[in-house]
């Protein structure tokens, strides 16, 4: 077979309507973004809780948080995703069966968000903990001296003051979570990477589809970078620049 570049690329395959696969790819991208946003938000909540547990919790809480972050940071995401995906759905099924509801059908979206969220939570714990420690302790002590409740201190002082320190790390975690969604292809969730592989396998145009998916991921990253730069500039507007 002749390797003529012009005949190798059939751009019609990327058309949005059914003979082409463009629409399927975009739907996969939407799924990826949904999971990334959901998992990242869950990760932020878990990370904030984890960081406060590690810094201000009792000895048992501190140790449990340490175990959580250590295990998640030492075991590959792929293994964690398999474990949490199967264990999580299985546990939930057994619980609902024990409660007499019969087996429940857990959507891949929810399971994916849960899995990415737990992984992101451990990373976010470390980032936020470091950021909180960068806040001058006098600020937090002053808030305490004013008689603020711990929740009020969290809302008015600690979170706003640590945010500029945490932003570089947190923005990187967002980029990691968009790329980690690709791992859900291994458990059969139809996000961008899996639908790309299906499209490529069906049409045998492997290069075209994998490159197209790469462009989509790259676009997501570059757009995210633009937004991140804007947010960072805004969060640091009160800072003295040393340049």
């Amino acid at each position: 077979m002749a390797a003529d570049p012009a005949s190798l690329i059939d751009w019609g395959l990327l058309a949005l309507d059914p003979p082409g696969w463009g629409g399927v790819l975009l739907a996969g991208l939407m799924n990826s973004i949904k999971i990334a946003i959901g998992g990242y938000s869950l990760g932020l909540v878990l990370g904030t809780g984890g960081a406060f547990g590690k810094l201000y919790g009792g000895p048992v809480t501190k140790d449990l948080m340490e175990v959580y972050t250590t295990v998640v940071r030492a075991v590959p995401e792929l293994v964690l995703i398999l474990l949490l995906y199967y264990a999580g759905t299985d546990l939930l099924n057994r619980l609902s069966a024990a409660a007499g509801y019969g087996s429940v059908d857990i959507s891949g979206l929810v399971a994916g968000i849960f899995v990415i969220g737990v992984v992101q939570g451990a990373y976010a714990t470390e980032v936020i903990r470091g950021a909180i420690r960068a806040v001058p302790s006098g600020q937090i002590e002053a808030a305490r001296a004013f008689g603020m409740s711990p929740l009020l201190i969290l809302r008015r002082v600690t979170l706003p003051a640590m945010l500029p320190h945490a932003l570089p790390g947190l923005s990187n975690l967002w980029l990691i979570s968009t790329k980690d969604t690709a791992l859900l292809a291994v458990v059969g969730f139809s996000e961008l990477t899996l639908v790309t592989r299906q499209a490529a396998g069906t049409t045998k145009a492997y290069m075209l589809f994998f490159c197209a998916a790469g462009v989509l991921y790259l676009a997501l990253t570059l757009v995210s970078n633009l937004i991140i730069r804007f947010i960072e500039a805004r969060a640091r507007r009160g800072w003295v620049t040393t340049r």
Partner: peptide
Amino acid sequence: CTIIRGTPLLLQLWLLYYGLGSL
């Protein structure tokens, strides 16, 4: 650096294996 860091490793792996492997 931008391209490699901006796309998932799994996709790069499959691009090389299935893409180049079929080419």
